[in-house]
Design a protein around this nucleic acid. Structure first.
Lengths: 240, 240
DNA sequence: CGGACCATTGATAATTGTCAAAATTCGTGG
DNA sequence: CCACGAATTTTGACAATTATCAATGGTCCG
């Protein structure tokens, strides 16, 4: 298997762009062409990738690792908007106009990222309608996510919001296990609290409570075991 | 000025699609072609346009009036996601896949709507890359709106959220006035409460409080007068 | 092993939700 | 244009929930 000389072994077939769903409509030669346009960069855990107010001239694609996109609320807390992981892209909001970034983006762990200048990106859109349609699809998904998010975060009961969050994480970051689903949490307690718009202490209390009720088990600071998914589904109020 | 024989005088130049920003890149002949594909329909206040779970085969364009898009939370409240007005479209989320509608849409007042079947819409996308780019732009705007929404509705104090909402409405539905800005509210107290995820009574109390503090004046159930915008800006926490 | 960071727990205060009743507004029909 | 009934909104009292502050306990990583 050939290796991308910039990305190293993490690039399957030497083509990191292949990982990106929006390019999946393209054939090998087209991927090669795009690869040539891509710049690479690595970020350390905690490093800022994009700051609110900046006008980056490129679109970022997460190639490895995960990042958080957030803003600061008036009282100084982080309001987390998205967690982007492998294959996701961001910075695309400002393709059309020339708007400044609406949020900060920071690496949650070591991150490898690909960058494509906006003008190259625009040319791609004009040349490959399929890519435009893929992007529309991605934006639709993101909107759907935001709509659900709004519902989970806007619900009145905190228990329901926390249950939604755990289920969400289980689906995204969970691995099956004999006793349930092991979830590697992308955020700290404080991060989750900010995400839900509640106090850090409240998350602790609710987690303890759920542990008493055998719904979850706290494995470490960064991971929990989901024991009773049906109960959480009920709590979250999402009927399937 | 010719009239659209279906829409009547509300259709400028006989082309209601002209009102829709996503088609603004097109020339007159192209608009004519699209017009031929469009079906029209009117809805009464309170009438359902789309129900969660349905799979409509068309995209809806609001030609006159306004609608609300919402879901029901577990405890039976409406969670309002969007208010769409003249020129907005919805139902586009499901162009790509064949997903069911994720929310209900209901007319807030008498509504005239244009409908375009999804297959026609898809053909347009393939044929006119400019439309695809416009749509990407619209979806980006909607995402930006949702991100802001999430920030206004989530996390912060109820006072800040209400202030944000009023400012938002002032910008969208307000008309200048000698004493301040007259705002024609698109939602009832209950609607606003649901939008913000708080109790109807809390909105009442906060409005009364703000009226005592001379920030706003309640004119009627459906309109208020914004007296002290700077104070609300401060409350909302948005520094400009 | 130690120190920094993160998480938990307890006590208390502040905020908001809930229920019930009264007041106001709205729309319709005379 | 007015009046009346229905719907919506406001207000009050109280209960429930969550935030805050402070102290303790645990975890991670060199």
């Amino acid at each position: 298997m050939p290796e991308c000389d910039v990305c190293g072994p993490s690039c399957k077939d030497g083509l990191c762009v292949r990982k990106v769903p929006i390019f999946s409509a393209l054939d090998y030669d087209e991927l090669l062409k795009i690869s040539a346009l891509v710049t690479h960069r690595e970020y350390q855990k905690g490093e800022a990738i994009l700051r609110e107010g900046e006008k980056p001239d490129c679109v970022f694609i997460v190639n490895q690792g995960s990042v958080k996109a957030f803003r600061y609320t008036q009282d100084g807390r982080e309001q987390i908007l998205y967690i982007f992981t492998e294959g996701d892209f961001f910075g695309e909001q400002y393709l059309t106009g020339d708007k400044a970034a609406a949020y900060d983006v920071e690496a949650l762990e070591p991150v490898k990222s690909c960058m494509l200048t906006k003008s190259d990106f625009r040319k791609l859109l004009a040349g490959y309608p399929d890519i435009a349609i893929k992007i529309i699809g991605t934006l639709e998904d993101r909107l759907t996510y935001m709509e659900q998010s709004l519902q989970s975060r806007g619900g009145r009961s905190v228990d329901a919001r926390i249950a939604s969050l755990i289920i969400n994480y289980a689906d995204t970051y969970g691995t099956p296990d004999r006793e349930g689903t092991l979830i590697k949490l992308p955020l700290s307690r404080e991060g989750m609290a900010n995400y839900l718009g509640i106090a850090r202490e409240t998350i602790s209390r609710k987690f303890s409570q759920m542990e008493n009720e055998k719904l979850i088990r706290s494995v470490s600071n960064k991971s929990i075991l989901l024991l009773d998914r049906p109960a959480l589904d009920t709590l979250s109020g999402v009927q399937k």
